[in-house]
Design a protein around this nucleic acid. Structure first.
Lengths: 147, 147
DNA sequence: TTATATGCAAACGCTTTGCATCACG
DNA sequence: CGTGATGCAAAGCGTTTGCATATAA
């Protein structure tokens, strides 16, 4: 198994040291389809017998956000969660409220709407944040079957 | 001066007791054009010599959110703030990043975009949250003058 | 070898809670 | 009067920090 964890790669490219805890965090994150909280990450780490200090965990998360590999989102519940995301173009997340799986959503469709809203209000819109919540395709079918 | 604070009115309508601390919070909130944090509210209260316990402050804020007179927003800085909003139809906020003044934005324009995004991803979108940040008209002109 | 990262534990900020007292209706 | 609201102070939660130690490059 060659080293192909994209997070590890990105850390290397950014000139960060590839320490054991960072590799561990990278692997933990890779095992999530959807969003996760810091606490979830921590308990998954201990389930797997990985030694990662809480401080290191948060420092690593912060670094990954800096590198735009991760984004912090506020769930409807008020919890803070993290989602993986592809660095690069502006986008948003759509989050399944049942399984937590996320999908990236490209911005262009929204851009027009945002421009309209600016025109409507007279505000010069500099940035915006959109979070969508709903059911992913597989949870939809799963629920239909049960119903 | 007749009792015309809309927050007080709404509390009365909701069957809540009109206690002194609640009236005080209602008046404090009324004096903000834009968003405010719990801490700001608390220090404004003490500036004005009003006695309001921290717990009561938070309990009142929670109640006002329940009544949809207030909404909690997450500023780009990560701070939590509260903004007044008109109960009723679904809407979003546009927040001036300079003076904090907010405007409500009706949803319809966005609704189409959200529907598109759902179609694109296969998710069934149940709810969404949009926060817009930028400069309000008066801050725009003020900045132009300075520049 | 040396700048960087780590772990611990304590500090932190914000928010909530338990509980005895108070006061609106 | 009785229920619901208050204030305090302490607990709670998630996150950050100081500092001595360990480690990648």
């Amino acid at each position: 198994m060659t080293e192909t964890n994209p997070i590890v790669d990105a850390l290397a490219r950014a000139g960060c040291r590839l320490t054991a805890p960072r590799r561990a965090v990278a692997d933990l994150i890779a095992s999530y389809d959807g969003h996760f909280t810091a606490a979830e990450l921590e308990s998954l780490a201990s389930e797997r017998g990985l030694q990662i200090g809480r401080a290191t965990l948060f420092r690593t998360l912060e670094m990954l956000i800096e590198l735009r590999l991760l984004e912090r989102v506020d769930l409807p519940s008020g919890e803070h969660a993290y989602v993986r995301c592809s660095p690069g173009q502006h986008h948003h997340h759509i989050i399944c409220s049942r399984c937590g799986r996320t999908a990236d959503v490209a911005d262009p469709i929204l851009a027009g709407a945002v421009a309209d809203l600016g025109r409507q209000t007279g505000y010069r819109v500099d940035s915006h944040r959109l979070e969508l919540f709903g059911l992913c395709p597989s949870c939809q079918t799963r629920l239909k079957r049960t119903a």
